[in-house]
């Protein structure tokens, strides 16, 4: 990616992650990895966010919280599943309270595997997400003109 049409803001939610991936998500915003150089800012408000980073598996308690955050975000939006638990359920797949990966609750666009997911992988996934965000925005524009 050499150019992005806007500075995407992201929101992070910890599903039932062990914390490892959350810390790495925060870490990728720190001076060493610094995703802010791509204009990316971590926000706490779903309405301000374009990219939804979700870590950890979906369980019976948080499934509605995740859906709720996703519904509050405005279109176009992209979901990134960070870490193997968010991708498939990971080592906790067999646990009785775990439903599975993030895609059991909301549509996921980018999967970033790893246990814990490395900051490099997160940056890579977020940049892919930015591309998808642009595509989704272009599609929305096209359908607008068509109307």
């Amino acid at each position: 990616m050499s150019y992005s049409s806007k500075s995407p803001w992201l929101i992070h939610y910890d599903g039932s992650s062990c914390n490892g991936c959350d810390i790495e998500v925060l870490d990728s915003m720190m001076p060493l990895y610094d995703v802010e150089r791509f204009g990316i800012i971590n926000t706490g408000n779903p309405k301000h966010a374009d990219i939804f980073l979700i870590t950890g598996a979906i369980n019976h308690q948080n499934v509605n919280v995740v859906k709720h955050i996703y519904d509050q975000m405005l279109e176009p939006k992209v979901v990134v599943a960070c870490g193997i638990c968010a991708c498939t359920g990971g080592v906790f797949k067999d646990a009785y309270n775990v439903i599975g990966g993030a895609d059991k609750a909301i549509p996921v666009d980018v999967y970033a595997p790893g246990c814990a997911v490395r900051p490099e992988t997160i940056i890579d996934a977020v940049l892919k997400a930015v591309k998808i965000l642009d595509e989704k925005a272009a599609k929305m524009d096209a359908s607008e003109k068509h109307r």
Partner: peptide
């Protein structure tokens, strides 16, 4: 309860 996975029970698997 938002992060409960039921990890202790996994000893059986």
């Amino acid at each position: 309860g938002f992060v409960h996975r039921g990890l202790e029970k996994l000893t059986q698997k």
